Every structure is written in structure tokens, then in C-alpha cells.
Simulated scan of single mutants.
Amino acid sequence: MKQPFGIILAGGLATRMGGGDKTMLALGGVPILSRIIDRIAPQVAALALNANGDAARFAGMGLPVLADSIEGYAGPLAGVLAGLDWAAEHGAETVVSVAGDTPFFPCDLVPRLLLASEGMAHPLVLARTPDGRQPTFGLWPVALRHDLRAALEGGLRKVVMWTDGHGGREALFDDPGTPFFNVNTPEDLARAHAMLEGDE
């Protein structure tokens, strides 16, 4: 299998943070997005950002910015679809998605997702921790993008309903700590600063 492309999902409304771009909040002196790029870029063949609105606000990040093609903020699956369509244009077979507000995810995310997908005709794997599935972290097959588009246009929004319907697998991440901790509130951002200081 070819090395996957990567898509950072940042298309949400960030309502619990008061709006704006969570990904651009400073964590340890740099935007959260920069930390995410540093983690995922070495693991993928190419990388893009899924975000809606004016793409110019991400101009300094050096990534193509892909807007949802489904109207009305259809959730993370719409961002996955944008990544799949982009990857298809460049001949890629799979896309790995990561959340734009989760700065500490594993640096070996992609190889572990790929390992879990061995033998699948259409590699479809979600990350899982002992606390449950992490539906914004997954390996997605370009071959099913038209099926996903039809499901979204039909009103589907729940990630696991679609993945389960296609025999999706899970990759267990039982790493110590909270590698999939995400920043949703100002309190979360404060905790992320504390976690960063503990790491460094």
C-alpha cells in the first residue's frame, strides 16, 4: 500500500472556546496547529488542512486548505470527505485524519493504523483508547469516498455508524497518559500547557 495522505480536521465552530480557530491558539509559544503538523507530517506522503471560511488565515502554515463540500457544517466526516477527494486527485489510496485540537497524539499513529488494516480490501480503521473510539483519528479508503458523500447528503453525521456499516476496524492505543486529549475549552488549554511542561 502507498503511504497515506494526511488531513487535519479543523472545520468545526469551536463554540465551547467562544468561536474562532482552536488550532491557532498558542501552546508553548506556537499554534496548536504547528504542533499537530510536526507530529503528522513525517508520517504521511502529503498533508492538507480541512477548514471552512477564509483560507488566508492559515497562509503561514504552508498547507493546502480544503473546505467542506457538504453544506451546513456536517461534522468531521465532511472533512474526511474533503481529504479523500483531494487525495483522489493526486492518486493516493488512503487518508489518515487527525483532529486539529489534539496536540499530543502518538507519533506512530499512522503505522499502527496501517498495521490494524492489514488484509482489508478498503482500509478503514479508527483509533481506540480504553475509554472508547476516537472517531476523528482514522485511516480512510479513497475508494469509498462516493459512498461517504452519498451518506452525508442523506443526513448521516455519526462517524461510527458509517465505519461500522463498512466493516471498519479499530486500532487500540493504550499508551500511558492521555495522548488523545483535545482542547475544547479555556480550561482544557490551561491543562494542555501543564501537560506540555510535564513533557518537556
Rank of each mutant, 00 (worst) to 15 (best):
K2H: 03
Q3H: 02
I8R: 12
G11D: 06
A14H: 05
T15W: 11
G19C: 10
K22T: 09
K22Q: 04
T23Y: 01
M24E: 10
L25H: 08
A26W: 02
A26G: 01
G28P: 00
G29K: 00
P31C: 00
L33F: 03
L33M: 10
R35K: 05
I36H: 05
D38N: 02
D38I: 01
I40V: 12
A41C: 01
A41V: 00
P42Q: 11
Q43T: 05
V44T: 04
V44S: 01
A46R: 15
L47C: 13
A51L: 04
A51D: 05
N52K: 06
G53F: 03
D54R: 13
A55W: 08
A55V: 10
A55Y: 11
R57K: 13
A59D: 02
G60L: 01
M61Q: 04
G62Y: 03
P64W: 10
V65T: 05
L66R: 01
A67Q: 11
D68N: 15
S69Q: 12
S69T: 15
I70W: 04
G72P: 05
A74F: 15
G75R: 00
G75L: 02
G75P: 00
P76M: 12
L77V: 09
A78Q: 08
G79N: 10
V80C: 15
L81A: 14
L84A: 08
D85H: 08
A87C: 10
A88G: 15
A88W: 15
G91W: 14
E93W: 08
V95G: 07
V95E: 01
S97T: 11
S97E: 07
G100S: 02
D108P: 00
L109A: 06
L109M: 07
L113C: 08
L114V: 07
G119S: 13
A121I: 09
L124S: 10
V125T: 03
V125C: 03
V125Q: 02
L126W: 05
A127I: 13
R128N: 01
G132S: 06
G132W: 06
P135M: 07
T136W: 08
T136H: 06
F137K: 00
G138L: 09
L139G: 09
L139I: 10
W140D: 05
W140N: 04
A143S: 05
L144S: 12
H146P: 00
H146K: 04
L148A: 07
A151Y: 06
L152A: 12
E153G: 03
E153D: 10
L156M: 14
R157W: 11
R157I: 09
K158P: 02
T163V: 15
G167T: 12
G167F: 14
G168S: 11
E170C: 09
E170Y: 14
F173C: 08
F173N: 07
D174Q: 02
D174E: 04
G177D: 11
P179N: 11
P179E: 06
N184V: 04
N184G: 08
P186Q: 02
E187C: 04
A190H: 06
R191D: 02
A192W: 07
H193C: 01
A194N: 07
A194C: 12
M195W: 09
G198A: 15
G198R: 14
D199E: 15
E200F: 14
E200H: 12
